[in-house]
């Protein structure tokens, strides 16, 4: 079988297992991805500020939603991406899955923080306080903690290969328990206060507001993928550099040993 035959029989994920091929593909896609993300986000901001009407109750603050909702959505997608990558790494030993999980964690944490920060900025004029122990806010905060745990575990384990495996275990445990946490926080909230405080999905139904929101969501998703691909590229380059440095040190050590022997 010629190499091209082998390649044609492989699925996309198998073909991307070759880091060089991934670097080529992501290198070509990167400018388009980043450009499209920038264009869509700018267009969404234009729509949000100049086209979308004010909400009759929320006034100008409704515009925060155009960043808040995509950020919250991507925060959850980020963890799903980590879980899928962890599964791919533990089960299929896909070499790029660990790189993907590592790159996704800080980006997901950043979007979670963005969702929490924009939410609390919206909450101050609307609810009169920056923070309410509402079920949604609480579960997003816990999601942020899970991201912190993943990042902390990875930075605490010195052996990189081992850190990847342990983080994959933690990622899968986290995604298994996440629905239970979400459910229990919902229960906890409804136990203590009536669920009438937040009607975030009220205004989104109107098409004048929905359209900019969709554009914004697509733009921010592209931004997420662009950042994720960039993070993966950086990580691959960093690992290459590391193995080259180790090889260099080994060679120098061998040379000095040979000189000492000679």
């Amino acid at each position: 079988m010629t190499p091209s035959d082998v390649t044609s029989q492989q699925s996309l994920t198998q073909r991307l297992a070759n880091p060089t091929r991934f670097m080529q593909l992501s290198g070509t896609l990167m400018p388009w991805l980043a450009g499209a993300a920038a264009a869509l986000i700018l267009y969404a901001l234009y729509l949000a500020f100049f086209v979308a009407p004010e909400d009759y109750q929320q006034g100008q603050t409704v515009k925060i939603m155009f960043i808040h909702v995509p950020a919250a959505w991507l925060a959850m997608m980020g963890y799903a991406l980590i879980a899928i990558s962890s599964f791919g790494y533990l089960v299929f030993r896909h070499p790029l899955a660990d790189v993907s999980a590592k790159a996704a964690a800080p980006i997901g944490a950043a979007f979670t923080f963005l969702a929490l920060a924009t939410g609390s900025l919206w909450g101050k004029p609307m609810w009169g306080t920056y923070w309410v122990w509402d079920a949604r806010l609480t579960s997003m905060l816990i999601l942020l903690f899970l991201y912190f745990g993943l990042i902390a575990l990875r930075s605490a384990v010195e052996d990189e290969a081992l850190a990847g495996k342990l983080c994959a275990v933690l990622g899968l445990v986290g995604v298994t328990i996440l629905p239970i946490i979400k459910f229990s926080v919902d229960w906890w909230n409804t136990l203590h206060q009536p669920a009438s405080v937040i009607r975030m999905d009220g205004p989104t139904i109107h098409p004048d507001l929905l359209w900019p929101l969709l554009v914004s969501a697509i733009g921010f998703s592209l931004l997420f993928f662009a950042l994720h691909a960039k993070g993966m590229r950086n990580e691959i380059l960093r690992r290459r550099l590391r193995s080259l440095t180790i090889a260099e040190v080994d060679r120098a050590r061998g040379a000095s040993a040979a000189a000492a022997a000679g």
């Binding site: 816990i142 903690f145 745990g149 575990l153 605490a156 342990l166 275990v169 328990i177 239970i180």
Partner: peptide, 22 residues
């Protein structure tokens, strides 16, 4: 998970406490 992490106790708390919420 934190078996061979130096000063793993603090990390252990960060990893485990969110799981105890339910």
């Amino acid at each position: 998970l934190t078996l061979r992490v130096r000063r793993g106790g603090l990390l252990l708390a960060l990893l485990v406490l969110p799981l105890y919420i339910p």
